[in-house]
Design a protein around this nucleic acid. Structure first.
Lengths: 346, 346
DNA sequence: TATAAGTGCGTAACCGATTGCGCAGCTGTG
DNA sequence: CACAGCTGCGCAATCGGTTACGCACTTATA
């Protein structure tokens, strides 16, 4: 005590004022900032004993390096951007939520945080903000549209990004389920079961996922020497009214099976059938894609392809970190559907 | 051209390498960094002509100040944290989504961005990360629990924060709808309509909002010289099974009206009644809180109190910015319910 | 035992902004 | 004409880290 207190008592007072910094540590331990920095990062040469003293100090006083200062020094933000549509349909929210848990987990593991930006059909200013202001080191785009202003924007900017979903051109790094293959396979399976008049009801045809599924459907038909029939394919069903009309159309066109493109459509199809007293699976069979929890065991027997948004988020974030680290990545990654048929007993 | 090209052609090459900085501007304009900074921020004295030159340059080369450097200089991150449960129920997602749009909008208006952190019942490490690493200047907590580890944590830390929702102690800055008053009023209205055996079906009793509504219900009964009756109050209904039992209990206890605490409960109550062929509103009346879009015009006539999560988000973010700016704020803000009864024709 | 190789650590520049202080030069007042 | 006050602007320190370079000292090698 007496040996070290040569008139520097002031230090103690000053230190309380704000957060503890790397200079504080250096002063208290009578070593240089450089050594402290090296002890922490593990880069450079530091004596074992010194390193231990530093680490012990850090532990004791719960020191955390200031991310701004660190970022400024090596030109990183330690943030990645997570971009989702601000006006997305309620039934899409579980998808984004579960993607996001995956992205968050991977980010946290890399000591990164998530900067959120909500984009709208005609307003991607929040995305522009975080990119142009350099608040992120990379971007994960939560979904893709056929004509996607976000993708167009990101392609022009000099920033690593990956998209969850596919793009028409396929010239960006993309993570997706292979909707085309899955829907094609589903179609084949249904045909093999003896069904001959397959119908398709889908949503927004500006969403790539819907286009992919439709293409898969057509492919599946082709593989069995069939083709889409008049009155059996309905896209852009925005609400239960549209879906209702589509179902009526299907019945008129004598569909024996309806493939629903997503949870919402499926729920609304089931509702319509119930209202019209059409019985599943005797009068008609239903197949669907299952990405949420809106279907459960009270749902009548349907054939459902299930997949896992969380692993999409994980894969996307991992790929993004490879990009940020300057590594080569696969431009296109397809995650398997869990083709386990949820309720196949029709 | 000839006049200015006195051996500084190198500049042009160097500039392409990275982003343009305040020093680049200073060099090119033959003024000091200080002046540039002042011209941008508007603080300090700068000649009108100089300011214009700087602004023109910025416009032309699309200069954006580096937020890390700026943050380091005045100890701000220009981020606020948005904390939501990572395991929230699907039916809660629209609420958070809409809150978030409000928070985002206000943040963007203040030149701030949103850092996301997902917390779980037993794991608030993502929140701890962003606070302890000082990645945010303040926090908006998306909902409150009766025993809330996030609130406890934030109270200990030296960081501005506001919660959306109430707390048992009320000793933090909170923005909420006045669920107690609203539910009390709703109860009184129903009683005035002649209903005498009011039932309440609710969810998780660790959620403050549910506790508040329950308290409001009891208050409303008291105000009419009534009290909660045996077999008419059900809490902690996690799923349609629980809700089903609750509805059966209500019918056995001869309820003439059921108040549903939230959208999900309401939907499951309606489903159960439909399955059991109990007709609304003749055999029983239904009232509910409406914060989502799961109810629509195909829903039978019910009395619903509506409110707007988006304005909660806006109010919360505004309050947070006041806190960050060191201003005084109201500790407790109640936003009005839109007591407009959605479908009151029972 | 002289020399090369390796270790531990510090000096100082740097990342890109902000800001206190002070210095000229101009304007206005008596 | 002298002096106060204001205006426009620059110097240099600062925020809290990282890192190239170099120096002194220890250890291995011939």
């Amino acid at each position: 005590m007496s040996k070290q207190s040569n008139g520097r008592d002031l230090d103690l007072i000053v230190k309380d004022a704000g957060h503890i910094t790397i200079s504080d540590i250096a002063n208290d331990l009578n070593i240089s900032k450089t050594t402290v920095s090296r002890a922490i990062s593990g880069k450079g040469r530091v004596g074992a004993k010194t390193r231990e003293r530093v680490l012990a100090y850090i532990e004791k006083y719960n020191y955390r390096p200031n991310p701004l200062a660190r970022g400024l020094a090596n030109l990183k933000t330690y943030n990645i951007g997570w971009v989702v549509p601000g006006d997305s349909d309620v039934t899409d929210l579980p998808f984004f939520q579960r993607c996001m848990t995956g992205v968050c987990e991977v980010a946290a593991g890399n000591d990164y945080d998530i900067l959120l930006s909500m984009v709208y059909e005609k307003d991607i200013s929040q995305l522009e903000r975080i990119v142009q202001n350099r608040k992120v080191d990379g971007i994960v785009l939560g979904r893709t549209l056929v004509e996607d202003p976000c993708v167009d924007f990101l392609k022009e900017m000099d920033i690593p990004f990956v998209v969850i979903g596919s793009t028409p051109t396929g010239d960006v790094v993309q993570i997706d389920n292979d909707h085309v293959a899955a829907c094609s396979e589903l179609t084949s399976i249904l045909i093999m079961k003896g069904l001959r008049r397959l119908a398709l009801i889908g949503g927004d045809s500006n969403h790539m996922v819907n286009i992919s599924r439709k293409n898969g459907f057509i492919e599946g038909l082709k593989a069995n020497q069939m083709k889409p029939e008049e009155g059996l394919v309905y896209m852009d069903c925005k609400d239960r009214k549209d879906v209702g009309y589509a179902v009526e159309g299907c019945m008129r066109a004598k569909a024996d099976c309806v493939i629903c493109m997503d949870d919402r459509i499926c729920r609304e199809v089931l509702e319509k059938l119930k209202n019209d007293n059409i019985v599943i699976p005797t009068q008609i069979k239903i197949a669907s894609f299952y990405d949420s929890v809106l279907l459960d065991n009270s749902t009548p027997a349907i054939t459902a392809l299930q997949y896992d948004p969380r692993s999409l988020g994980i894969a996307a974030a991992r790929t993004l970190f490879h990009l940020i680290d300057g590594e080569e990545v696969e431009p296109i990654t397809y995650l398997n559907y869990e083709v386990a048929l949820k309720v196949s007993t029709q």
